[in-house]
């Protein structure tokens, strides 16, 4: 049953996609617009080929992904550690949480000039910016998670005279895991966004963001659209991977 529903959903869902692509192709072939602005679709496919073969599209993609994951790893791990600290220590929370809440009001991209000035040219600025994007959601959700440990379990732990480390590993972390994973998942989405932003606004270097800005500057709409599709596809894949990892980890917990 699911299979048939799946198939039915598929063809109906494709209708507007096909209509859109057909309209694109028609506009492109009508000669009403510059083909650089609306390139024919087969041109786009051809472009994919030449970009991969000649212009190291894959190199740009790899550069973006490495940048993304480095910043993400840095920001998310700091977020988890900070979140556990703030979640478990009322003192740390009272000291730091208000400042954190004030700083996170500043729209992410407004940090770019300051970070560029502080960390200069090269990868450091970009990675710090991506890490900042990953840090905030991880921290918030980790705090929520650690505080959601059930009071009963905590009491049991106290009765069993668990040490602090045992308390953390046996009670708080398992309770916080779903929430931490939500935070990490959000962080993954945010850091991909930040990666593209960093490539727009910081020193030029290889990357998908650079590629699509270049396409815009040179009126190569094909290149820009190709870049956008890649941004969307990578975002989608990261999302999928995060969800799968989440499910697997949570299944392990319940088992």
């Amino acid at each position: 049953m699911t299979a048939t529903r799946q198939r039915r959903l598929d063809w109906r869902g494709l209708v507007p996609v096909v209509v859109l692509l057909a309209a694109w192709e028609a506009i492109s072939r009508s000669g009403l617009t510059d083909t650089r602005i609306v390139p024919p679709l087969e041109g786009l496919v051809g472009l994919l080929g030449t970009e991969v073969a000649e212009k190291s599209l894959l190199g740009n993609l790899a550069a973006s992904i490495v940048r993304d994951l480095s910043g993400f790893a840095l920001g998310a791990s700091l977020g988890v550690v900070g979140g556990i600290l703030l979640g478990l220590s009322p003192l740390a929370s009272a000291l730091l949480r208000p400042s954190f809440d004030v700083f996170r009001q500043i729209a992410l991209f407004a940090w770019i000039p300051l970070i560029a000035m502080w960390f200069g040219i090269g990868e450091a600025s970009k990675i710090v910016f991506v890490a900042l994007a990953a840090f905030t959601p991880t921290l918030i959700n980790t705090v929520e998670g650690t505080r959601s440990a059930s009071a009963t379990l905590v009491e049991v732990g106290a009765l069993l005279r668990y040490r602090r480390s045992q308390m953390l590993l046996a009670i708080y972390l398992p309770a916080a895991l779903p929430s931490i994973l939500t935070g990490v998942h959000l962080a993954l989405i945010q850091s991909w966004l930040a990666t593209i932003g960093a490539e727009y606004f910081m020193t030029a270097g290889p990357g998908i963001g650079t590629l699509i800005i270049e396409g815009r500057d040179r009126f190569q709409m094909g290149q820009t659209v190709l870049g956008m599709i890649l941004i969307g596809a990578v975002g989608f894949l990261l999302n999928r991977i995060a969800r799968a990892a989440e499910n697997r980890l949570l299944r392990w917990r319940t088992a």
Binding site: G13, L193, I196, T224, G232, G235
Partner: peptide, 20 residues
């Protein structure tokens, strides 16, 4: 009808739409 198109377009963040 709409979900495939919407879901795919929604994958590209606002930031990615700017150059286009």
């Amino acid at each position: 009808y709409a979900s495939v198109l919407f879901t795919s377009l929604a994958q590209v963040p606002a930031l990615g739409w700017i150059p286009l």
